[in-house]
Amino acid sequence: MNDRKTLTFALMDPPYESARTTTAFRLLHAAIAQGHDVNVFAYEGAVALPFARQAPHANATHGRSAEEERHPVPREWVDALAAMAREKGTAFDWVNCGLCVDERGVGEAVACARRGSPADFWKMAEASHNTLVIGTR
């Protein structure tokens, strides 16, 4: 596909703290849906997004059990983007900043996320058609 591009995104916010996380994942979704290859560099708190031990919960206030509530857990979003990319035949590479992972103790990540460093971000940006940084405010 001639229009297929490589786009890199840097994320920085931890889960459950900012609307930026939702918008960032919507951008990733739209990019894959349009057939682009997508790289993600997760920096600082964002390395907890693919943390494998996130657990959905019930919501008594809304009167729903855990099964009914299907509470969003971002690790499922990361996995779901990888699954969508496989279906579309595009590339999806999620790199967690290793030092950020270590200081937070969130090394146990979903399988599609890999450990890396700022050097990976630089290489991804160099090899991409465009890069969008979504920093913490």
């Binding site: 459950y16 703290e17 900012s18 609307a19 996380t21 008594a60 206030t61």
Partner: peptide, 22 residues
Amino acid sequence: AYRATYEEQDDTILWLTQAMVA
């Protein structure tokens, strides 16, 4: 307003208020 409302499926303080009122 609207801080992580999608991940929480709620506003956390409105939720907290309802939980404490209950």
